[in-house]
Amino acid sequence: MERSLILLKPDCVQRRLIGRIISRFEDKGLNIVGMKLMQVTPDLAKQHYAEHVAKPFYPGLEAFITASPVVALVLEGLEAIRVIRDILGATSGLKAAAGTIRGDFSSSRQMNLVHASDGPEAAAREIGLYFTESELCDCTLSLTPWLRADDE
């Protein structure tokens, strides 16, 4: 089982797409183990995007991510990081395939609705920025046996 941080970004929240996006993840069988509506502060943005702080585009990125609340989620599932990134589609909504979240709802490179961790190390770091251990809920849903075999 793998976990990934998901941020439904300000454009997703403002466009009232939260439910439609979350349903895509649930439909795929991913479990929500943490979720909250929150305001990203400039300090949190700097921690999250630490590798970009010195880049010329960073001020715009920070202004965007702090402009409105986000919904932070931790999703869990088999190969969750890859599966989530496949569901999202290409980073640019202009290049994302139809049927993906970005392909269906985004027509921008920056306004791409959702952030998802890009690997296990990033996921662990990012989850730690947004959630305490006590905010994550481990549970096995009653439908789990109908989503995957016991040996998966």
Rank of each mutant, 00 (worst) to 15 (best):
V13S: 10
L73F: 01
A54Q: 06
N112L: 07
L5D: 00
M35L: 15
F64H: 05
A123I: 08
R16H: 11
N112A: 13
V70C: 11
L143W: 15
L129I: 02
A45Q: 12
V53K: 05
E76K: 06
M38C: 01
L136C: 06
V33M: 02
D86A: 09
C139R: 08
D27V: 00
E51R: 03
K95W: 09
T132H: 08
C12T: 13
L136D: 04
L37D: 08
L37F: 13
E133W: 01
Q110C: 13
P69C: 11
S106L: 11
A45Y: 13
G128D: 08
R15S: 14
A67R: 14
E121V: 03
H48D: 03
S106V: 11
S4Y: 00
S142F: 03
L17N: 12
L136N: 02
K55A: 13
L113C: 07
E51M: 05
Q14G: 05
L5I: 00
I65W: 05
R102S: 10
A149P: 05
Q47P: 02
R24H: 00
M35I: 15
I65P: 10
A90M: 05
L78A: 08
V114C: 04
P59S: 10
R3L: 00
G99Y: 02
S4H: 01
I21E: 07
D104P: 00
D118L: 06
A122Q: 12
Q14F: 12
Q47K: 15
G128N: 03
D150G: 04
V13Q: 11
E79S: 13
L78G: 01
D118I: 00
V40Y: 08
R109Y: 10
I84E: 02
A96V: 02
C12M: 09
D27T: 01
I18G: 04
W146A: 11
K55E: 15
G34H: 11
E26I: 06
H48L: 11
E126I: 04
A50G: 09
